[in-house]
Computed example of a mutant assay.
Amino acid sequence: MPLVDHPVRSQIEAVVVAHDSAEVLPACLAALAREGVPAIVVDNASRDGTAKVAERAGARVVRMARNEGYGRANNAGVAASGAAFVLIANPDLVLDEGAAAALLAAAAAYPDAALFAPRIVEEDGRYFFQPRSLLSGFLTNPQGVPCFPEGDCCAPFLSGACLLVRREVFLAVGGFDPAIFLFYEDDDLCRRLSEAGHALVHVQAAVARHGRGKSSGPAPGRIFRSRWHQAWSRAYVSRKWGLPSPAPGMFAWNAVRSLLALASFRRPLIERYAGSAAGALAFLRGRTALGREGVLAEPGAADRSPG
């Protein structure tokens, strides 16, 4: 059913967080426009003209003074929206025709659910469906057995690459955890929504194409930085939800692997393991992700400053 005929069309607005995403953003925004979905682009201090690209495409732009990470930028975008439903989408994601309408139809059909996600198809044609989550309090699937749905279903986790959320509920649970700069913010949101009694629904009829890893342009040290945040965030959410700390094991394992990787002279491999070891060690030492990125001062930083 075309979106223009959907009775709740005026209730949806997209939030797209972008950082150096000028190359992929036009396709994302064009698909949203085709679906009749207005967009707010939160520009996370891009250096490649992302904000101008968004404005030329007719999107409303929220400019962040610095890159504050995925979750905090999405929180700013949702706060700027006045819609009943917010579609959170990565800039390298393109909705298939009718996807927005299918998500909204699911929201109407399942009033006890707060979060909805489309069927995500990767560039190579693979169908992304995560069978478990570190933080899932139900449908735990400890062996991670892949079982792809054939229709709408409740899920333990929905990917932050594309989510339709009831804005009122999102705000009521505090949005994405602002302490997380990158990674596991979607797992944490899913857990909090489920703890609050809301279902998470995979919507089979809605399809989105995801160019994984293309949200931002290449930058020196990107792999190290990404792996640092992945390790730190996993340790953070594990502690937050009372799970055993993975930080000591992650540090030991990746420190050894990074030393072995030095012999390969392969920079991406070295950055991968060294970044994971550094992120785990930083967590063990009480450092924060926001402190690393200069968004907030590290705890006790004033006490360590000279004079």
Results as ranks from 00 to 15, higher is better:
L171F: 01
L171Q: 14
A172R: 12
V173G: 12
V173T: 12
G174E: 09
G174F: 06
G174P: 12
G174I: 13
G174R: 10
G175L: 11
F176G: 00
F176C: 10
F176R: 06
F176W: 10
F176I: 06
D177P: 10
D177V: 04
P178H: 08
P178E: 15
A179N: 05
A179M: 04
I180D: 00
I180K: 01
F181E: 00
L182W: 10
L182S: 04
F183R: 00
F183M: 09
Y184V: 03
Y184W: 09
E185H: 08
D186K: 01
D186W: 02
D186S: 08
D186H: 02
D186L: 07
D187P: 05
D187F: 09
D187E: 15
D188Y: 01
D188M: 08
C190S: 07
C190Y: 02
R191I: 11
R191W: 07
R191H: 07
R191N: 12
R191Y: 05
R191S: 10
R191C: 07
R192I: 14
R192Q: 10
R192A: 11
L193F: 08
L193C: 10
S194E: 12
S194R: 08
E195D: 15
A196Y: 06
A196W: 12
G197R: 11
G197P: 14
H198S: 12
L200D: 08
L200Y: 03
L200N: 08
L200P: 03
H202C: 01
H202E: 04
V203A: 06
Q204I: 06
Q204N: 15
Q204T: 09
A205E: 15
A205C: 02
A205D: 15
A206W: 03
A206F: 01
V207M: 05
A208S: 13
R209T: 02
R209A: 03
R209Q: 11
R209W: 05
H210K: 08
H210M: 11
H210T: 08
R212K: 06
R212G: 05
R212Q: 12
R212Y: 13
G213L: 09
G213T: 06
G213E: 08
G213I: 09
K214M: 13
K214P: 04
K214H: 13
S215P: 00
S215E: 15
S215T: 10
S216A: 13
S216N: 03
S216D: 07
S216P: 03
G217K: 07
G217R: 09
P218D: 11
P218G: 09
P218C: 10
A219G: 03
P220I: 05
P220Y: 06
P220W: 03
G221L: 03
G221K: 04
G221E: 07
R222F: 09
R222Q: 14
R222N: 11
R222M: 12
I223F: 03
I223S: 02
I223V: 15
I223E: 01
I223D: 05
R225F: 01
R225D: 15
R225Y: 08
R225E: 15
S226N: 14
S226A: 09
R227Q: 14
R227T: 01
R227M: 14
W228M: 02
W228Y: 15
W228R: 00
H229K: 02
H229R: 07
Q230L: 14
Q230P: 00
Q230E: 12
A231C: 10
A231T: 07
W232Q: 01
W232C: 00
W232A: 01
S233L: 03
R234M: 15
R234G: 12
